[in-house]
Amino acid sequence: MFPIIPSILIFGLIFGYTGGNADLPLLLVSSTSFIIFAGTAQFFIILAIIQGDPILTIIITAIVINLRHLLYGAALHDTIKTKGIKKILVSYFLTDEVFIVSAELKKKFLAKEVLENDIEVEDCLIGAGFFAWIVWNICTIVGYLFSDLLVNLFTISSEFIVAGTFLGYLVMQWKNFPTERIFIVQVAVLGFFLSFWFQSSLLLIGILLLGAFIAMFEQHRKNTRLERMEVH
């Protein structure tokens, strides 16, 4: 989880700074962090409030932005077997960053690298999510309170911070899973061209859905080929 923290820390500060800079009340800015806890949606909500958008628009758009969670949840479903309160906590804490950590853990579990330690994926997910929640909330408040001092910190673009945080994981996926390379190239090319027309959450959802369709199409082709071989 620690490698993901710089991204959460910087975006928490930027989020708090955005609210503070627009002179919104601290309670309003920080309540989005501890109630909603979904970074991209929170950014949209605060910007929409600043622009004076209607409440219904804010609610509907925030829900649409969060639709990407359906793919995260479905992707982790096979790994998470928990019940009761843990089930609720996992649902609340499943953010973009926590999903990346969980997906990495899932792969290690499948490779049986961490079975000896007797750790469950859901426990790691809750721990990572809780830690992310604490850091995100503290940074929101710090960013808000020190918004005047933080102006100089944000000369480095937020795009660079995001790409820098996740580039290492993409490189390691490429290195460790040669069978996934064609898929990564296909999605990267598609993502590159989609970036000319779409932005932020719409782009993210578009790439996730197209990636899923490509993978499903490849699997379907593979299944058909196997069936034909069996017939022959």
Partner: peptide, 17 residues
């Protein structure tokens, strides 16, 4: 298979654009 691709797609979506 489609759902298992989400983590790789997410990484690409967060890096390339």
């Amino acid at each position: 298979k489609g759902l298992s691709s989400v983590s790789n797609s997410l990484l690409v979506a967060l890096v390339i654009p």
